[in-house]
Design a protein around this nucleic acid. Structure first.
Lengths: 232, 232
DNA sequence: TTGCTCCTCACGTCACGTGAGGTGGC
DNA sequence: TTGCTCCTCACGTCACGTGAGGTGGC
């Protein structure tokens, strides 16, 4: 009684959508002209299409809808409960991106810190005290630890890894925030930006900052900062 | 200096991800062994990968990142501003689905109303007054109009379409809420559920409800209710 | 020799949009 | 004859995940 375009206009969908539903077996025309391939739809198909679109507005996928379109209200409820959880997770993921983007827009920085969990780690270190941040550059071990919770000011505790002697330091599995020092950047500046980043997110420093110096065969070098944190 | 699996572990991504970035030209290995095809990565690639992942956490697509990974902070800001808008729209879409789903879960109903805008429409009608909703069934025109803002109680105004005579009624382009009467349902019950639905969303009725009776060649029939609305 | 790691295809995901190239009905 | 509508492929979208089938290095 209706051709594909008429049904499409009535229901507010595209004809391509109806062909897609036909292809996946979700909405089969009442009849198909053998000679021309024209699809013909009736009231039953309009009703079914309205239900399909209604369920889709509730966030269900076509795969779920295919199982639910002829099911009971109870089955729909069950599926909806699951779907709402999924949707909330998706929203949380997008919201996290928006928050991170707006923070980055607001703060004139180039670092892009990452929150992650790292495995336990055992280090052999030699402890020392540093009077001024400039001294750190002279130490320049591959792995350098500092006990700071913000801007270095006055003397502070530090440690460098060592082959023999020293003491063994065990860092447990922990949440950390990690950032690379940009190619053009200085470690102290990056450290400051990173502490600022933590403060804006109300994260507390829970242990030593690790400063890892990496060098490859081409002599290229980079520095990674890693601060253990906990929500405050 | 590092093989694909080592870089992957350092950066917290899968080796498959690194092969994907190689394929799309986003992150090319420092060297590839001609004989074995093994990919080798150095510090420059680690730095680049960290930036790629950082930009990804801000919601940028790999296509955008490919253009921005070597760009200035200003270019990144511009792209982020655009992306935040897109992300907000996506969040709004998902939130609308969650809201609709939770409403449906809360309310023990089978209708799945749809908000849409419809074009202007011209009808030739004969007006009448109805004493009781039961009379509507006896009128049973293909298009029936009622002036109600909630449950029918006592007499109310109505109209039916007519071939000749009567008056011309012009309905302007308008926002409407539309719902199908379920196969097993009664029109009056569906009307009540639909008015409840409007009230929960704080929508006001702004004109006559249209009750459209559709019949096809197989004699199957359905009824569609359409109420013009405005935000309150 | 045995694990572990690496390699290259190539399909699948989700719901269609968008041509390309051709035909039916008024 | 001219629009309008319909048809069937078939690729593209997004960022990889997941086998299948085979090989390199300790």
């Amino acid at each position: 009684v209706w051709r594909i375009g008429q049904l499409a206009r009535m229901a507010g969908v595209s004809d391509r959508t109806l062909r897609h539903y036909d292809k996946i077996g979700l909405l089969t025309p009442a009849a198909v002209d053998r000679a021309t391939g024209y699809r013909w739809y009736g009231v039953a198909e309009l009703t079914r299409l309205d239900r399909i679109r209604g369920l889709q507005r509730l966030g269900l996928s076509l795969r779920q809808i295919a199982e639910l379109v002829d099911a009971s209200g109870a089955d729909v409820r069950q599926a909806l409960t699951d779907t709402v959880s999924t949707l909330r997770r998706d929203i949380a993921t997008l919201s996290a991106a928006v928050d991170a983007a707006e923070d980055h827009l607001a703060v004139e920085t180039t670092i892009l810190p990452q929150e992650t969990t790292v495995a336990a780690r055992r280090l052999r270190v030699r402890r020392l005290r540093v009077a001024d941040p400039a001294e750190l550059r002279t130490l320049c071990a591959s792995t350098l630890l500092t006990w700071l919770t913000g801007q270095p000011a006055g003397g502070f505790a530090a440690a460098v890894t060592t082959e023999r002697g020293g003491e063994t330091l065990v860092l447990p599995t922990r949440s950390v925030v990690r950032a690379h020092v940009p190619p053009s950047g200085r470690v102290v500046d990056t450290g400051r930006e990173l502490f600022d980043w933590l403060h804006r997110r109300r994260l507390a420093v829970t242990g030593p900052t690790i400063e890892e110096h990496l060098t490859d065969a081409d002599g290229r070098t980079t520095t990674v900062l890693e601060i253990p944190v906990a929500a405050r």
